[in-house]
Design a protein around this nucleic acid. Sequence first.
DNA 1: TATTGTTATACTCTATAACTATA
DNA 2: TATAGTTATAGAGTATAACAATA
Lengths: 145, 145
Amino acid sequence: MLAVPANRLDDQLISALRTGVLRLSRRLRLELGGDLTLTQMSVLGTVSREGPLTIGELANHEHVKPPSATRTVTSLEGAGLVARSSSDDDGRQVLVTITDAGSELLAGIRRRRDAWLRDHLDQLSDDERQVLEAAAPLLDRLAQS
Amino acid sequence: MLAVPANRLDDQLISALRTGVLRLSRRLRLELGGDLTLTQMSVLGTVSREGPLTIGELANHEHVKPPSATRTVTSLEGAGLVARSSSDDDGRQVLVTITDAGSELLAGIRRRRDAWLRDHLDQLSDDERQVLEAAAPLLDRLAQS
DNA sequence: TATTGTTATACTCTATAACTATA
DNA sequence: TATAGTTATAGAGTATAACAATA
């Protein structure tokens, strides 16, 4: 069988993917709840994943400018979720690390979000779940490329 | 063949989906560019899709409070992207409609985002594209449910 | 009286520019 | 001099509370 013209398929796929990804992402954020703002949550997650980071490194990861990183770190530090320490190598640098309380709060947020996804995945058929299973790593690859 | 325990599969799927969707969504937003903020973009999109809306309806769609909707509409109106008119039915209500300039700006944003997705989809195999094709509507269903 | 939208006020997030401390 | 981080200042987004106009 001859291939369906690729452009036509791509157009539909792109539009559907854009809508699906954006809407699901929004719902996921809404279902999060918790006391943190999105900015604080994102920074906390980055510090958790990427280990001790300087303010500059954190700003780069978050795609914000250093003053914004400073402000968010200050608020998280005030809540006891991250800690500042000075670098041994360079006295100008500040190292930001996550605290135990920060890790626990983050875990709670992930639990809530995953619980929501779990509830809603139950409404799908086995076949549909298999499709999503194959698609998930592709979405991530798309985001990294 | 006996079924693999569903819980184990679900755990992996949920985690992978969460990561993939959130990262792709963030990348999509980053690739957008343009002069609008995310809030303005979202409101403009909603007004475009949902036709004339009152401030209250718009606030509900966007999950914000009426004062926030008022503020965003005022900024978009100042940029000539939406227009306010008063309702014939109820003198208290304000109807918000998109202007031609608003529609054009929105189309440009979608073009940029879709162009990025198109470039990156080209790096996938045909099989992988088919998986995404099947997954896209499922993501949307998940978001609506 | 109840409802719709706006205005008043306060807080967070972001940016640029100026400043401080260290290299 | 250059760099890392902070502080100063300004503008957008959000909320709650108070207000105006209309139902």
